[in-house]
Each structure stands twice: as C-alpha cells, then as structure tokens.
C-alpha cells in the first residue's frame, strides 16, 4: 500500500513464509514476518555486524572505523554526563546509547528505497517508550523508596485533590507523547516519500523531502534520547 516494494518481505514470500498484508498478522509466524519485525532484525544485524567489523580488534592508534565509534561514544557519554551526572550516566549508558543508535539507524534506513523504518510502526515506538517509562519509575523508587510517589501529591496537603490528577495525567502523557511523536514523524516521512515516488519519482521530486528526512531522523532520535535522559534525571532528583 504505502510501500510498493519491501525486499525482505518479497524474499520471505518467495520462501513460502506467510507475510501479512494487514498491519498485524494473526498467527505467530505471521506476526514474526511483519515488515517492521523483519526490518528491526535487519537493523540489529547491521549494528552488530558493523561494530564487529570495525571494533573486532581494538588498537592503541585507532583506524578510521575505531575513530568513528570513539567520537560517537565519547560524544554520547559527554551528553549523558552533562545532563544526569557521572554515576547515572555509567549505569544507564548501555540502554540509552542502544536506543540512540537503534532509533537513528532505524529512522535512516527508511530513506533507502526497498527498505522501511521499523520506527514507522507504533508497536516499535510504544515498546521503546514503555521501557523508558518503566525505567524512570524504577529509578525513582530505588532512589527515594515510596517517598517518590509523594511528589505526585504536590507541595501542600489541601492541594492534593487538585495536584494528584494533574501529575498523573502529565506522567501518563509522557507515554503517549514520546511514542506518538517518534511514530508520527517517521510515518509521515515514509508516507510522504512513497507518495512523491509514485507521483513524480522520475523527476527527483522526493529529493528535497529526503534531505529533510535525514534531519528529521537524526533530530527525532536525539529528542527521544534527550527526553529519556531528562525523565531519568528528574526521577532521581525529585522529592526533596
């Protein structure tokens, strides 16, 4: 429909596997063959293979591959430390940097014809968001115990009936806004590109949108990680 050609889906269909034509399949095998699942695996394989190839043997004097990763990892580490302190950055670095790399690569492969972004499905983004949301509650609970939930009640006791719903709504809204923002931006980019390809693909009409798509992909990956960092830092320092 939106994606005329998805090469993994075509290969799987030729192999005789049931690729669902709706957004979600019905049987387990159909669910596993959904395009966003197969492309998630493609991104995972891509990240593992590339890092294995460039970081297979670490050297004192880095080559170009190792250099790239050192700049990237160093930059992300600085960013996390600046926003939430050394200790938490060390604890959360594996999770957050994996999110950053996965979302950035997942957004960007959608620009190549024949591939789609796994993040253009709400299932993927909601899964990522639930992990972040649960993590920031766990961090808050571990840092403050049950006192963490006191900050949901506001500063004064007679304000509790007013503050409690507001805080609960704004906390649940994080779940909605974080997942729908990423999903909406990437899906819009994919749909717009597909439509422009169909209408005027021969005249390079999608090219300007592709340039914007690169910007949107990187910014959305950054926003997602920035907000995850901010939520975790807030949960840690809340409830004084």
């Amino acid at each position: 429909m939106e994606h005329p050609i998805l090469f993994i889906s075509i290969i799987l269909e030729k192999l005789g596997l049931p690729v669902p034509h709706d957004f979600v399949g019905h049987t387990l095998l159909e669910k596993l063959c959904e395009p966003y699942m197969t492309y998630t695996w493609l991104v995972m394989i891509f990240l593992i293979v590339v890092s294995k190839m460039t970081l297979g043997n670490l050297e004192m004097v880095p080559g170009s591959g190792q250099n790239f990763w050192e700049i990237l990892i160093g930059g992300m580490d600085d960013f996390f430390v600046e926003n939430m302190g050394r200790e938490m950055a060390d604890a959360l670095f594996p999770m957050l940097s994996t999110f950053a790399l996965y979302i950035a690569v997942g957004n960007l492969i959608g620009l190549i014809p024949g591939l789609m972004s796994p993040t253009s499905s709400i299932n993927t983004t909601l899964a990522l968001t639930i992990i972040v949301w649960a993590t920031h509650h766990v961090i808050g609970l571990r840092a403050h115990g049950l006192k963490y939930y006191k900050h949901f009640m506001g500063p004064l006791w007679w304000l509790v009936p007013l503050m409690l719903p507001i805080e609960l709504i704004s906390n649940i809204a994080r779940l909605v806004s974080l997942s729908v923002r990423l999903f909406g931006n990437i899906m819009a980019k994919e749909t717009l590109l597909a439509i422009l390809f169909m209408l005027a693909g021969a005249f390079f009409a999608p090219l300007p949108i592709m340039m914007l798509g690169v910007l949107v992909s990187l910014v959305q990956a950054m926003v997602f990680v920035l907000l995850a960092v901010v939520y975790c830092a807030q949960a840690q320092e809340h409830a004084h």
Binding site: P165, I169, S170, I172, A173, R174, V176, S177, V180, R181, G184, V219, M222, V223, L226, L227
Partner: peptide, 25 residues
C-alpha cells in the same frame, strides 16, 4: 538549531498529549 529543536520541538506534542489523556480518562 539542533539544541532548540530538541528542547522546544516537542512542546506542542506534549501539550496535546496531556489534553487527550485527560479527556480520554
């Protein structure tokens, strides 16, 4: 520009999400 986009780009979405969560509840 990227700093501004990251810090302020999500204001509109968060605002709308809050209203819809309240309304939905």
């Amino acid at each position: 520009m990227i700093d501004l986009l990251a810090n302020y780009g999500h204001i509109g979405f968060t605002f709308v999400a809050c209203i819809f969560v309240g309304l939905g509840g």
